[in-house]
Nucleic acid binder design. Structure first.
Length: 216
DNA sequence: ATGTCGGTCGCCTATGGAAT
DNA sequence: ATTCCATAGGCGACCGACAT
């Protein structure tokens, strides 16, 4: 491994699990196999400060990086559906705003995260990592499908399954008490894979990209 | 006996694809 | 054409373990 690649491997990365207003955000900072920081906060700017503090380069976020496009939706989600990876269809902004159930609150929260990171870590708009600090969209179930096998991964057993998966990757999960923290670590793992070039981009420039590790 | 905490379960919101 | 199943988070109900 060359010097640059070796340095990249120990870079600090982060994963963020986005919840509604009650649950807030969960952040995990990962450096190699070491969990450097586990934090939760209702304020996206606080997570941004934490990431600056740990010199985080790449941040994987479990929330849509952009709204659906009227009439055509998002190519990334259709591509995944074709591969039998179920995901939630992101509505258009108009549709999300019109909803009165509060169901989309977590998606609006996700938008606040991207906004808080925009100045230092803009959303990755290319199909691959270019070396600059970025945020990117990913989601735990797709990561689990890639690392466990699509036919094995099940959201119903996500607590036990995802914890076991992380332990098999050599991570210590004792500090990760809730499913939200586990999901955040999975996003951080996706960030490591993106840096290493072991990542696939679903979607296109119009509907935005979703990055998932390539199957092992 | 009463209260708290974590974990599980089922159902709600929405949507698209597969199966029937 | 209709039903079923999958994903996401939220929420209330319930249960067992433990503390007061």
């Amino acid at each position: 491994m060359t010097g640059v690649a070796a340095a990249r491997q120990v870079e600090a990365v982060a994963g963020i699990d986005v919840g509604g207003t009650t649950k807030g955000f969960h952040l995990v900072v990962l450096q190699g196999a070491a969990v450097r920081c586990v934090a939760s906060s209702p304020d996206a700017r606080e997570l941004h400060q934490r990431c600056l503090q740990f010199k985080v380069s790449v941040v994987g976020i479990d929330a849509p990086s952009q709204w659906g496009v009227e009439g055509i939706g998002r190519a990334a989600e259709r591509e995944m559906a074709r591969e039998r990876i179920s995901c939630f269809a992101t509505p258009t902004l108009a549709r999300a705003s019109a909803s009165t159930s509060g169901f989309y609150e977590w998606m609006f929260n996700g938008a606040r995260v991207y906004e808080a990171f925009a100045d230092t870590h803009p959303i990755l708009k290319a199909e691959r990592f270019t070396g600059e600090p970025v945020t990117f969209e990913t989601f735990p179930h797709a990561i689990a499908c890639a690392l466990l096998g699509r036919d094995v991964a099940s959201a119903k057993q996500k607590r036990t399954q995802r914890r076991r998966l992380l332990e098999e990757l050599g991570l210590d999960t004792t500090e990760l008490k809730s499913i939200d923290s586990l999901d955040a670590v999975l996003c951080a793992v996706a960030a490591q894979r993106l840096i290493q070039g072991k990542s696939r981009a679903y979607g296109d420039g119009v509907g935005g990209y979703i990055f998932v590790p390539t199957p092992v």
